[in-house]
Design a protein around this nucleic acid. Structure first.
Lengths: 341, 341
DNA sequence: GGCGAAAATCAAAGCGCTTTGGAAAATGCC
DNA sequence: GGCATTTTCCAAAGCGCTTTGATTTTCGCC
């Protein structure tokens, strides 16, 4: 069933039927309801490809996920972000396109996306420090919203981000106020912008309280469980062991907890953990009382907001870039306690 | 830069240029190379929407993810599956489309997808027992591959699945051979086909060894960490506590481990755990020695295979459905030991 | 009842590509 | 060289929709 058949069935021109369906005013109410009813009855759905070709809009948003050859990891946060964004798209009648792009031919990939015309805009994932994609996208004029920010990029662009620096400063300070002095940081890969900012926050808190920064207590890796385990195991074997850990991911925190147990230590009493918590649906941080004291910010919410931002950017292209800074909540759980004396 | 401009620039017709670019034989080698070079130099990319309209193919695959209102959870497995599939699509020049579909209006959604013509085929996620989507999709003639199977559906259809039943039978048997008799099952939601099959496998093993099935040792819920924790905590508080747990997810297993620790018991010595392991990139089961004894099957590999199956199904539509049963590996880790006597 | 303006409808062009049916150029063969 | 083939290229139609510009119908009003 296509427009032509539908219009013939109604004894109307394609023009009128099209207008009736798309809510244009140049059509009488009576025929509009008639058309709508027929479309419903005959199960008519416009072909999006044709519609896109005619209007120049694709009614789809692209999500570009950089995959590097070294790090074969899929970001665990991605599923929830997508779920949030998906809701917004569904409301607006947009489709969601996923694009895994090997980071070596990124430039080509983005030009491709633009030229092939399958999307109206994209969400940029995983920004690194001084991310060149931002300049590229601005140049080719494809609307985009970055999930995160990019330090050292001075162009104006739209983004939504958590206040990573502020959150980690606050979390670290919380530990300091509990009397901790040897505080380890198990960060994500620090070429990633979020991780870079988190370290800055951590360092700021230490500095503000006159605690010297100890590089041997800082790690930067892909945020797996094993990473947390290995790093904590090694650090806890020292004579001068850390009394607290700041983790960039709840998954890493779980690894740290494993190492703590294995070392015969007790969480919160002997060693404290504070972690970032993306409020992932499948990794809730406890139900009533949180397992981990955490800096929580729902990545699902971020996804939904990012999508809305992009959609409005596409609707009103002349608008200035939008930015949105989300604050993480500090929630007190059962993984922190005063420093052992 | 579109076809018309390119052909004018070359002083050729659109026909010839199109054929040269798409590898048709009716064009001389000399002009083909000339065209290819110009396309490269001028950065020409065909508009996919137009191409799709003309050819009737969308060059895209849809992934439909049912989201139920009760279970707001995003499947943690999803990211890795997509990553695997994405590789295959990239190789074939296909795009990947994501569609979150609330499970109440599923029928409409699939008809929509078909009619809107934005995809050439779809991957069906999260099949339940007697999944009605399979009949629907067969009827409307949209090529599809199911990730999983659907018990009680008798139509032929294409699927790729892990031998869940066999795996759980084997895992349970492994525990029995270690002397365990009170073995708990922390399963996923059992209207989901995979969970249903896992229970069957578990029950078969018990039955084969003359162990009676104890409903109080079986749970079926969304596979979160908290679920594992709560269920294990409750069961371990009994006088007749289970000596082993079979888990449907490594995340749940982590929760069980937490409960074991909290109860002052020692993993493997006092209580054993065996779990299914999807080999998720961000939740590796240890590096050298696995943390958990597990039934492992890479969901990323499944994604890549599913995509390849669907692509070949689309290329040769007359072909009979393809099916693929993957076997899970039983890998021995540090979470199992002989039953405490 | 008849005029002009407003409302409702239509025919046709166009979006960027593929593909059919044909025409022109090159080739083979006697 | 002249004919039939084969090779190479082209003009135009068509994919299913939107939208422009024109046309028809309806309505208000004297």
């Amino acid at each position: 069933m296509n427009l032509k058949q539908l219009s013939e069935h109604l004894n109307l021109s394609q023009t009128t039927v099209s207008r009736a369906l798309n809510g244009y005013p140049e059509v009488s109410e009576s025929t509009r309801t008639r058309v709508l009813k027929a479309a419903q009855d005959l199960n008519y759905r416009p072909n999006l490809r044709a519609k896109g070709l005619a209007t120049g809009r694709a009614l789809a948003i692209g999500h570009v996920i950089p995959v590097s050859n070294q790090h074969e990891m899929v970001n665990p946060v991605f599923g929830d972000f997508i779920a949030g964004a998906g809701e917004s798209y569904a409301r607006a009648g947009y489709d969601m396109m996923l694009k895994l792009v090997p980071d070596r031919d990124e430039t080509r990939a983005y030009e491709d996306i633009q030229a092939r015309g399958t999307v109206d805009g994209i969400i940029v994932h995983g920004p690194v420090i001084n991310d060149e994609r931002i300049a590229l996208l601005s140049r080719i004029g494809l609307p985009f919203v970055v999930h995160g920010r990019s330090t050292d990029v001075n162009l104006p662009y739209s983004w939504i981000d958590v206040n990573n620096r502020g959150a980690f400063e606050r979390g670290t300070q919380f530990l300091i106020e509990l009397g901790h002095k040897r505080i380890a940081l198990l960060n994500g890969l620090e070429h990633m912008d979020f991780a870079f900012r988190r370290r800055k926050g951590y360092e700021t808190a230490l500095r503000n309280h006159g605690i010297s920064i100890d590089a041997s207590l800082m790690r930067s890796e892909e945020m797996t469980e094993n990473y947390g385990y290995r790093a904590a195991k090694e650090m806890l074997a020292r004579s001068q062991k850390p009394t607290a850990f700041v983790c960039s991911s709840i998954i890493t925190a779980i690894g740290v907890r494993r190492a703590i147990h294995e070392a015969g230590l007790v969480l919160a009493r002997d060693v404290s953990i504070i972690t970032h918590d993306d409020a992932l649906s499948y990794l809730e941080n406890g139900d009533d009382v949180p397992i981990f004291t955490a800096l929580r910010s729902s990545v699902r919410y971020a996804g939904s907001e990012a999508a809305d931002m992009l959609l409005s950017l596409i609707a009103l292209p002349q608008k200035a870039p939008k930015t949105r800074l989300l604050e993480a909540d500090l929630i007190i759980g059962r993984s922190t306690g005063p420093a052992a004396t």
